[in-house]
Design a protein around this nucleic acid. Structure first.
Length: 746
DNA sequence: GCCCGGTCGATTTTT
DNA sequence: TCGACCGGGC
């Protein structure tokens, strides 16, 4: 986020946004236009001269990082008073309400938050209970449907099947899933929002209390809100209608997780009296970068319209590299990085890619050139097994009804409580409408009719005693010592020590890091309890602590790059099928989202933007022949310097191999493919009867499987060519192009 | 429990 | 191509 000198005057538009007093306000804040500053100053102003109490102001963001930054910046002006603001992420805001009013929804106040792994486990359990095959009903797919419904504010009982058998079943699973969440006294992420809505639906008194309280509501990144979040804001703002939303329709890139771009596009329809302010002056990039970015985003039809400009000067042209292979691209990036090293720190440079799979080849090159880098995304700290195990202990201590966590730790480390035992306990719990914990905490009670041998009984009793001992201990010993106590009492630490592997050692290191996380938390929150720590962790993510004071080249997906900025940016893999991704080819609105993503990537760059694409890329083990992204056609040539003249103009025409006309300071790879295969997109295969070329994304019809989409072509233009085609819901076939007799449609 | 081999799938991800 | 995951066998 751009933090330009706070002593600097606000520009007239920013000023207007800060000064607007009452009524709905939409701030269309372009990339790098100083929107955080506007939000902060607006809040400060409301408090300072507007006579609004901090507790009457609610400000919501999407990430903890954004909430924290805003809080700190308000505190710089307002000191302690900033603590009374309701400033949080959507999820922690809702959590606060739900903890306070849990009983209204038949929850107790210490309910557990399920992350998506917990959610997945519960779904699997339900599939088992309902005797549904998890190959037909893939847990991931069920999870997607459930989350989507929650994002869209659809209840299980209203789940639309449209007569579809599969979806009907999904609805039934969904209903069962919700039932089990209550049994487990747990809520998933979606529930936090949805249940807040239910709470208001159930209790008009509570609703009106908060409606009265929040005289001013501010929403950051409004283009990322989903339907449920939209409904929540709408409801809360209903009394005062002082709702100020900040966002950028051109940076809406989270449709796949429920973001509803219509929320921002339709703001004026929802609030006809709304004032709209555009922040178009950019403080981040050069005019060249902005012109190119503006040109790309102009290709979208559904947008509010915005043109970024700057006083930063023209700057350098965008450096465009067209290479032969993905390896060449990586080499281009590395040699450029090395040539920039004199002027820039490594930490000032970043590489953005569309898909995580692209990072590998880049990493190989970076390592080869001994360029230190760090990579964002991937395995998350809190998703590591050892951290999840400890979290499960802690969650179980706070809420033993939570069977998912309980089962995870029951036999971790191994205590000889096996699968059969668990199944018998499950059966008993079901039979007696009790929860798992009820059974094991009185395991010898004849009521359960458990046919367990005495050895197993003792093992279970020992486990129950362990939990009791831990619960006792957490009252008695200081929280910062409790984790270590936990590691030892459970035997977990000893288990890792006994393993004597490097992996086990690194797990121990992670556990040590986990105690540091708790220590930090306790330092920052004097009143911190185990419960509040769990909340914090459950709603935390690794990206919250992306600090930029390290001297490593930064690697991340374009999605993760949103909100960040770097002096030097490499945007790689600008090729059809990759960026825009094949999966977006079907729907114009998906292509538009890809274009926004491209725009987000480009506008991260402050001074130097590099864009690259190649002709051949290894994908899923085989070579794909690529053509330059359509987005590149949209960038006016005058903003571009070609670093390599090969391929750029090749879209739609067979590329002419001229060899590298540009080569960097570093050694350029000498090995080249002997023959350049005829371009994939140009295959007009004799067995295909259509004029349309056979290419990734093409729609085809097969006599047996029906209509589908080509997702992969292997073997190029040869008799051995194989195409992988997706026919409707996940059915994929790999067919020989020669024999499949495909008919190209559309 | 644990290891091995086969199979399947592979866009993006916060909370 | 490569990793995750599952089921079978010990």
């Amino acid at each position: 986020m751009t933090i330009h000198d706070p002593r600097m005057q606000l520009n007239p538009k920013q000023q207007e946004a800060v000064e607007h007093r009452d009524g709905p306000l939409l701030i269309l804040a372009g990339a790098g236009s100083g929107k955080t500053r506007v939000l902060v100053e607006r809040i400060v102003r409301l408090m300072q001269t507007g006579g609004v109490n901090p507790w009457n102001i609610m400000a919501v963001t999407f990430t903890n990082k954004a909430a924290k930054e805003m809080k700190e910046r308000v505190a710089q002006s307002m000191g302690q008073r900033a603590n009374d603001l309701w400033m949080a992420t959507f999820h922690s805001f809702c959590l606060r309400l739900l903890r306070r009013h849990a009983e209204v929804l038949n929850y107790h106040t210490h309910f557990t938050i399920y992350d998506d792994l917990d959610q997945r486990s519960l779904i699997k359990k339900i599939l088992k209970d309902m005797q549904l095959s998890d190959t037909v009903y893939k847990p991931a797919s069920i999870q997607y449907h459930i989350n989507k419904a929650k994002n869209d504010g659809i209840k299980a009982e209203d789940f639309p099947s449209g007569g579809d058998f599969f979806l009907k079943k999904v609805g039934a699973i969904f209903a069962e899933y919700q039932k089990h969440l209550i049994l487990n006294q747990a809520m998933d992420f979606g529930d936090l929002i949805v249940n807040a809505l239910h709470l208001f639906g159930k209790s008009p008194e509570i609703l009106s209390k908060y409606q009265n309280q929040f005289q001013h509501i501010l929403v950051d990144e409004y283009q990322d809100t989903n339907k449920s979040q939209y409904a929540l804001i709408r409801l809360l703002a209903d009394k005062w209608k002082n709702v100020c939303v900040v966002g950028d329709d051109d940076q809406s890139i989270y449709k796949f997780r429920g973001a509803e771009i219509r929320n921002i596009l339709d703001f004026q329809r929802d609030y006809p009296q709304a004032k709209v302010i555009r922040l178009e002056q950019n403080y981040r990039s050069t005019q060249n970068i902005l012109n190119a970015s503006n040109a790309v985003i102009r290709g979208n039809t559904e947008r509010m319209g915005k043109e970024l400009w700057t006083q930063n000067g023209q700057g350098e042209c965008i450096r465009m590299f067209g290479g032969q292979t993905d390896h060449d691209e990586a080499e281009f990036v590395c040699s450029s990085i090395m040539s920039h090293r004199e002027k820039y720190r490594l930490g000032d440079m970043a590489i953005f890619y569309r898909t995580n799979a692209q990072s590998r080849i880049l990493e190989d090159s970076l390592r080869k050139h001994k360029i230190p880098y760090r990579i964002f995304g991937g395995i998350k700290f809190y998703d590591r097994a050892e951290i999840k195990d400890m979290m499960s202990y802690l969650k179980t201590l706070v809420n033993p009804s939570n069977t998912i966590s309980l089962k995870r730790i029951l036999n971790t480390p191994a205590r000889g409580i096996g699968k059969t035992t668990v199944e018998r306990i499950d059966a008993a719990a079901d039979r007696e409408s009790a929860c798992f914990w009820d059974v094991i905490s009185s395991v010898s009670d004849p009521r359960w009719a458990l046919e367990l041998n005495t050895g197993t009984m003792t093992k279970i009793e020992d486990f129950v005693k362990l939990i009791a001992r831990l619960n006792q201990a957490r009252q008695e010993i200081p929280l910062d010592d409790f984790l270590t106590f936990l590691y030892e009492q459970t035997g977990y630490w000893q288990m890792l020590t006994a393993e004597k592997t490097i992996e086990a050692q690194s797990r121990q290191e992670n556990l040590t890091e986990f105690t540091n996380v708790l220590d930090d938390y306790l330092h920052e929150n004097e009143e911190g309890t185990l419960e509040s720590f769990l909340d914090q962790i459950s709603l935390a993510s690794d990206t919250d602590k992306m600090d930029d004071n390290t001297d490593f080249v930064n690697l991340m997906t374009v999605h993760l790059a949103k909100g960040l900025e770097y002096p030097v940016v490499f945007l790689v893999g600008l090729e059809e099928g990759l960026f825009p991704h094949v999966r977006s080819f079907d729907k114009p609105e998906d292509i538009q989202e890809e274009r926004r993503l491209c725009y987000v990537g480009m506008t991260r760059a402050k001074e130097l933007l590099h864009i690259s694409f190649v002709n051949e890329r290894k994908l899923f083990g085989s070579t794909q022949y690529q053509i330059a992204s359509r987005f590149l056609d949209e960038i006016p040539e005058k903003h571009v310097t070609m670093m390599h003249d090969f391929g750029y103009q090749a879209r739609g025409a067979a590329p002419v191999h001229k060899g590298p006309s540009w080569s960097s300071t570093a050694s350029y790879p000498q090995t080249r493919k002997q023959s350049i295969p005829k371009h994939e997109t140009q295959i007009d295969y004799q067995y295909s009867q259509a004029e349309q070329p056979c290419r990734q994304g093409s729609r085809v019809r097969h006599a047996v499987f029906g209509e589908g989409k080509i997702i992969l072509i292997e073997g190029g233009n040869s008799d051995q060519a194989k195409v992988t085609i997706e026919f409707g819901r996940g059915i994929r076939k790999k067919l020989s192009l020669k024999h499949a007799n495909l008919v190209f449609v559309r």
